[in-house]
Design a protein around this nucleic acid. Structure first.
Lengths: 195, 195
DNA sequence: CATTTAACTGAACAGCCGTTCATTTGAAAA
DNA sequence: TTTTCAAATGAACGGCTGTTCAGTTAAATG
């Protein structure tokens, strides 16, 4: 049975990526078979190859998509002004954008080693662009005499690790509201840069 | 050919764990086969089952071992005294102990989802013991009026995420010496708790 | 030297893996 | 109504999976 009701290509494609995202985040790339993804979509394994060249391309697409959406959203949310305001905005943006995307964040950190070297390099390049945004804010703050920190690069990585780590324990039904958590992290990041 | 020179059980056992550690850190639990581990040891796959009940037990042993060694080392290195000294000691201990154990750290964070529910619960329990050590230091510092922070639990998790994140980018041949990095993190952790 | 036995082999088991492709389906175009 | 063709099927490919176990080896024991 094929093409049961209406053209499916524009429906099945996203459904394949959604299923892959969910399953890979849950069990890991190597542990999820193409047949399992196909089952989740409600299709035979062979049909997946209408939407991806192979399994590797499916993973890479998920990760590249995640990074490109992140950079696009960041560009839209970027504020200008003094470094303190930009730092606060960065903190809030990072939390707001990453928290509802737990599966993508998880995959983007966990499955790097399952990328081919070329694909890995591309993802790392995009990640670097994002890190550089924060590094520039810190450097500007230091140059303006507003921030007091010992090493811009290390502080950049420390802040991103601290912020991203939240994804591992945050639960919507937890003790603290998202707004409250956001406020806590804004405070911690400020202290970290010596404000 | 069996038992070529001397009794092997006390040699092969650790070699199996070493090979599993290295390969799982490199490729992920699901992506590494028992035959691949056996090949690394220089043995047939069947021989591995003299040293582990099954593949799951092999992973669990690696992770439990990691956590128990961490807690034992921590107990030995624990200092008493004022909260500031204890906090500095915790920071230095965490970095010193984790940095040379990149593979174990990686596995302990990445492969949690490949544990059975019972095994997962046990690892989480051990991790909680470690986190509680830091939380107590922070609470004591707050009670003594030395630390100024908004939420002890969130700050605990933030510090651990920040410290552990270093494992993802630290390279021995990098720009900064281990001592220098340690100093930077001691400073950042201090700032984070409002010293 | 003869015996014991820890350590390991190598084959076998049923089942799953990613990927390809000739074939079938049925909605849309003519 | 007939034709077209995007979309999906289902079988097949060689190869790998975790695990078991009867049989083999050789070091240690008596």
């Amino acid at each position: 049975m094929a093409r049961k009701t209406g053209s499916h290509s524009e429906i099945t494609g996203p459904r394949v990526r959604d299923a892959a995202l969910k399953l890979i985040a849950q069990h890991g790339f190597a542990a999820v078979s193409m047949r399992r993804i196909a089952e989740e979509v409600g299709v035979q394994a062979g049909a997946l190859y209408n939407y991806t060249r192979d399994k590797q391309a499916l993973l890479f697409d998920l990760m590249r998509n995640h990074m490109e959406e992140l950079l696009a959203a960041r560009q839209e949310a970027a504020v200008s002004g003094d470094p303190v305001a930009r730092l606060d905005a960065f903190t809030r943006f990072h939390i707001h954008w990453h928290l509802p995307r737990g599966d993508q964040v998880f995959i983007s950190y966990m499955e790097l080693r399952n990328l081919t070297p070329e694909n890995f390099a591309e993802i790392e390049r995009l990640r670097k662009v994002y890190e550089d945004e924060l590094e520039h804010i810190l450097q500007d703050g230091v140059d303006a005499g507003l921030f007091h920190l010992d090493d811009t690069k290390v502080t950049t990585l420390a802040i991103i690790a601290m912020l991203t780590g939240m994804s591992t324990w945050y639960r919507a039904e937890g003790r603290l509201s998202l707004d409250r958590i956001e406020g806590l992290y804004v405070g911690m990041v400020r202290r970290l840069v010596g404000i």
